[in-house]
Every structure is written in C-alpha cells, then in structure tokens.
C-alpha cells in the first residue's frame, strides 16, 4: 500500500491498529459504566455498575422475545425505518453514509488482513493476496462514492436550510465536517494516483498521492476510532442500542 513508503511501516500500522482498538474498547467500557450510573428498573435502587447496565439492556431488548428483537434489528437498525417515516431525503443521506462507512470500514479490515497474509507470505499466498487487493479497489470506489453522496447531503443540509443551520452546534459542525473531510481526502488521494474510477487521470499527481493518503488515514483513524466512543459519534453505538432496548421505539 502506498502509505508504507512514508516511514509508516507495516509494523507501525499494526501497532497503531492495536492502540486504536484498545482505546476504542476502553471507550465503550467507559460509556457502559457511565450508563450504569442509572438504576435497573423504574423507581429502583441506584446500582452503579457496568454489568448492571448490560443486564438491564438485555432485559429491555429481549422483553418481547427474540423475534421482536430480530425484527427491530432489520427494520429499525439496518433499514432506519423511523428516519424513513420522517424524511426520505435524510433517509437517503443516512443510508448512504451508514452503508458507505460500514462497508469501507469492513473493506479496510479485510485489506489489512490481506496485507498480513502478503507480508508474512502466509500459506504461500502472497501473490494471490496481491491480486485480491486489486479486486477490492472497485467496491472501495463504489462505497466511497456512496459515503461521499451521503456526506455531501449532510453538509449541504446544514448549510442551506435555515432552521437546521440555526440549531447546528459546533459539535454537529465538527463531526459532520469531519466525515466529509475524511471522505474527500480519501477520494483526492485516490484521484492523485491516477487512473481512477469515473475520474480517470484528471487529478493525477502521483508524487504527492502517498502524502494525501497518509493525511486521510490519520484523520480517519484519529477521528473515527478515537473520537467515536467519546463524542456525538457514540450514537453509532447508542442509537441502535436505544432502538433495540425500546424495541423500535414509540
């Protein structure tokens, strides 16, 4: 991968990944423990415990049985039924960001695994790994565009609609801006390498492509992985968990 050339060795990438995961897991633990400051039931005693949060959540989420739980996973979490009911535009916006982001994250994880195979020549599959990585580039592009479309709608809404703009906090602006920035830097890095999907060589500038890729990677790792449990992005965890605990909501 291009960014290894800028002093970012394979070992360093693995090291960073481990750190990021550790911080992320601690962040989730920290939030669960914070939520554990509540009680286990209506007018019940305060318990203050990580495990009691989990127990309460499981109790609530499965109150109506497994079937309702699964239905909520599909309709409310994966298909965002409640957002669709309120605003189709925002639904398209979020579905694009959601699936764009998730697929890019999944593809990146896969990419890293393939890198590991390639690096250690596991099972002697080094050459095949190289080819597999080539195959990933098209889905990378497609989901990248999806994320770009969603992020563009999100940013435009915040700029163009007066009511939305007036009630946008610095927090909203920072985080939506961050998604947008990460997506755009990602694309620009791709475009600079030349010969990219839809764009061709219009932005080709291979010397600086690695630099841009590095900026993109650092932003993505920094903003998503580190900030996620500590900011508005906790909604990526808390919103689906809320939908499930309330079995789809009111």
């Amino acid at each position: 991968m291009a960014f290894y050339t800028l002093g970012l060795t394979f070992n360093l990438v693995i090291f960073l990944t481990v750190i990021v995961l550790a911080v992320w897991i601690y962040g989730i633990y920290f939030n669960f423990k914070k939520w554990g400051l509540g009680s286990t039931g209506y007018h019940d005693q305060l318990r203050n415990s990580f495990w009691l949060f989990l127990a309460t959540w499981i109790h609530e989420a499965f109150k109506d049985g497994l079937w309702v739980f699964l239905r909520t996973v599909v309709l409310d979490v994966l298909l965002l039924r409640r957002t669709l009911a309120r605003s189709p535009v925002r639904w398209v916006m979020h579905m694009s960001m959601f699936y764009g982001f998730l697929m890019l994250a999944a593809l990146s994880g896969l990419g890293l695994m393939i890198d590991i195979v390639e690096h250690f020549n596991l099972l002697g599959l080094s050459a095949e790994a190289e080819m597999a990585k080539e195959l990933l580039s098209l889905p990378f592009d497609i989901f990248g565009y999806l994320l770009l479309i969603g992020a563009t709608i999100a940013v435009s809404r915040r700029f163009l609609l007066k009511f939305v703009r007036d009630n946008t906090s610095a927090y909203d602006a920072f985080l939506i801006g961050a998604v947008f920035l990460i997506t755009v830097t990602g694309f620009y890095a791709e475009w600079m390498r030349g010969n990219s999907f839809l764009i061709g060589n219009a932005f080709e500038y291979p010397i600086y492509a690695p630099h841009f890729a590095l900026i993109h990677t650092v932003l993505a790792i920094g903003l998503f992985a580190l900030i996620l449990p500590w900011s508005k992005y906790i909604h990526v965890i808390a919103t689906p968990m809320t939908l499930l605990a309330n079995r789809g909501g009111e």
Binding site: N31, W35, G38, I234
Partner: peptide
C-alpha cells in the same frame, strides 16, 4: 442519576441530533 434507568442514560447519548 439514580432515578434514571441505566438504559435511559444511554438514550440521552442515543440522541443523534436530527432535530
């Protein structure tokens, strides 16, 4: 926070500021 259920404290963080 004692009168909030722990899942309610989670709900507060679940608000995604959609307005």
């Amino acid at each position: 926070t004692g009168y909030m259920m722990s899942t309610q404290l989670m709900e507060v963080d679940g608000c995604n500021r959609c307005q």
